[in-house]
Design a protein around this nucleic acid. Structure first.
Lengths: 394, 394
DNA sequence: TCATCTTAGTTCAGAGGCGAAAACAAGCAC
DNA sequence: GTGCTTGTTTTCGCCTCTGAACTAAGATGA
């Protein structure tokens, strides 16, 4: 029932250009000759198209490689300085703004602390806009060179140009962050859920690289997941797909901060773990969690079991090729307990889909949310390199 | 990361032809003029393309409609007799073979009973092949007119040409049904899980019509789901996605016939319902279930609650536009309890995704599996009408 | 009756795309 | 320098789409 739209010859060019650019981006320095093999395009087409891209300075030469007794190959690569992307991480305690080049190397960043429970949308928007100016001037980049701004936020982001956000735990209900930002900038904006931007980062540059059917789970204060189907993030009809943390694993179980009962987050979210272990935090959750893990408390084993159930449900329902466990809680748990987590997952999965899945730890740190947000810009650039400057929203 | 492949001008033609044919198929009799509006193609292209299709007898004229004082529109439609599709339902108790024309009208069918627990793969394959001959001769259709054979089977179907099946409850582990059938026929074969073919049928011709993000759940002896993303069935990496019945809703709960504990199927599968209600069946499960429903036993309310949890997990994780409840148990429950099911789902869902979902009953009967299997053939035909006779497997 | 209007459908020329193959480029070996 | 090998560019033919001009077919009204 998918309704593919009509195509005209120009679409071919656009599409093939995107194919070529992606190949160039992900294969690093490559010769035209290699590109014909990788893309399936004819040498003629690769030649004319790379000539265009070189002329536009999107692609640059990157040395030569000798060949067995023939003309040496000229290597090409995407010009990392053709443009830049801003990635923003709006979290409970801070707003982080980073500037990345096209290779996703961070060129500058700035943090603004948020007082807990003071999440005035206007203030957050001002922080973001100020942050953009700061990172640009720090890195000596002019606004014309910026391809767009990606923003990762907590909660559910409505599809549409205004980037309307619903985040109960954040105190935001229907905040049009996109619209607020557009007052202060004319750059293209992409607003998306932070768990999804983190997933995007792990998928493109982290442990998920190369997988086209994957789930990236985020374990932190909140618990969420990014479902990747056929290489792209699956969003559902209103962009809220992936609320794994609030799927129920114990009908009528522990109460959750979402108001429901028996949610996965009520068992494996950091607050739930500490609560169940009887720890009253003095503020440093990471240390608290380390303490629990070291204590050999039965809560640890329970947590692994519950997590295994949650992961197994993903295995059975989604049948992914890879599950990446990210988020600081996930990584801290996984570092010592990954084999146990795998075992617990296997115990609750069907054999065939479990055998098809590998469960690995995320390898990007806490900056993954901002990096992933910037990746939204990169994705747009790779998909439609010549029209990347239109305004659009995630 | 999706790796779109290169395109050439011929692909455009193929693609646009598919777009046109789909529009024609789903809009019923339509004029060329309408088609330009629906497809976005130019009048010139529609004209030449329809001329081709008429010449190939894929499309036929279907009368005229006067217009306000101008030349009347000539209506066109897909020729329902251009080709035929065979749909096969392999179930626990029988093998059913149906012959459908392109409008999916059943032209002939035949059933073969299976003795319970005697599911010799060779026998099943012989039944199917014999059934194909029978329905063809009954309907007076020659094999050359058949575009393909779709088969819906229990269990997990490996991707690949051999149609290898793993169905624990059926006693099949690694049965290459596709290969067995290919010994006896050279027609294109499409083998898929029966829950998925039923989902396909509801999506194309039943309650799911028009939805592009949907879940069709099957409640019967087994419990499964078809997840539809962007208009197509989501299969996961090894084609087993959708094993909703074996996702856990009660960590460490009731044992399930899959060997696990706390599976949804162990609460809302027919055997689980009857077992929990203390009914010892005399063989007619439908009657037994009706009895339980009439008895106002607390098991009914519990079942609705558990089902609500299972559905809510789909709402939160998948964020579908529509959930269709199918399968005979689902329909029997839903007929009297749909409002309660909705309430139970709402109670366990996040507000935003729940608000975006409508929960409805399936409206196709027990023949949906065979119909959906035939639809696999139709789908291939609509996607690539000129090359529909290549051999391929689901 | 017939010129005119309206809407539907067809034909044609032109632009833009791709691929195969020929041509050109640039090294190596002798 | 001559031949060989491999990489890149150019030429040419074929295919597709579209806009615009053109034909078809009925309604209307003098």
């Amino acid at each position: 029932m998918a309704r593919p739209q009509r195509r005209t010859v120009r679409d071919i060019r656009r599409g093939n250009r995107a194919v070529l650019l992606r190949a160039l981006y992900f294969s690093g320095p490559t010769s035209r000759n290699d590109l014909t093999a990788r893309t399936g395009l004819s040498a003629a087409t690769v030649s004319t198209m790379t000539a265009d891209l070189l002329g536009e300075n999107i692609v640059v030469e990157a040395g030569q490689v000798e060949s067995d007794g023939g003309r040496p190959r000229v290597l090409l690569r995407v010009n990392p300085e053709y443009g830049f992307a801003v990635g923003v991480d709006v979290a409970e305690t801070h707003v982080r703004v980073g500037l990345f080049d096209l290779e996703m190397t961070e060129r500058a960043k700035v943090d603004y602390m948020l007082r807990p429970a003071r999440h005035d949308p206007e203030l957050v928007a001002r922080h973001i806009l100020a942050g953009v100016e700061v990172v640009l001037s720090d890195a000596g980049v002019s606004p014309e060179q910026v391809l767009g701004i990606g923003v990762g936020v907590p909660g559910i982001v409505e599809p549409g140009a205004d980037g309307v956000i619903h985040a109960k735990t954040f105190g935001w209900d229907g905040v049009p962050l996109g619209a607020l930002l557009r007052r202060g900038t004319s750059l293209p904006l992409y607003v998306d859920n932070g768990a999804k931007t983190m997933g995007q980062a792990e998928l493109w540059f982290g442990s998920g690289r190369g997988a086209s059917e994957a789930v990236i789970v985020l374990l932190g204060v909140g618990v969420g997941a990014t479902i990747v189907a056929d290489g792209t993030t699956f969003r559902g009809v209103s962009s809220s797909a992936g609320e794994w943390g609030h799927t129920k694993i114990v009908a009528n179980g522990r109460p959750c901060r979402c108001g429901g009962r028996g949610c996965l987050e009520a068992y494996v979210g950091i607050e739930a773990i500490l609560d169940r272990a009887g720890v009253t935090s003095r503020g440093d959750w990471e240390e608290d969690l380390a303490g629990v893990l070291a204590s050999k408390s039965p809560v640890v084993e329970e947590t692994v079991t519950y997590l295994g159930v949650g992961l197994a449900n993903l295995v059975n329902l989604i049948n992914p090729e890879k599950i990446v466990i990210g988020g600081w809680v996930g990584v801290q748990l996984g570092e010592s307990l990954l084999p146990d987590i795998r075992r617990a997952t296997a115990a609750n999965s069907l054999a065939e889909p479990y055998a098809a899945t590998s469960i690995v730890l995320g390898r990007l740190g806490p900056d993954a949310v901002a990096l992933g947000a910037a990746t939204l810009v990169l994705e747009e650039f790779l998909n439609a390199p010549q029209v990347a400057r239109i305004t659009a929203a995630g």
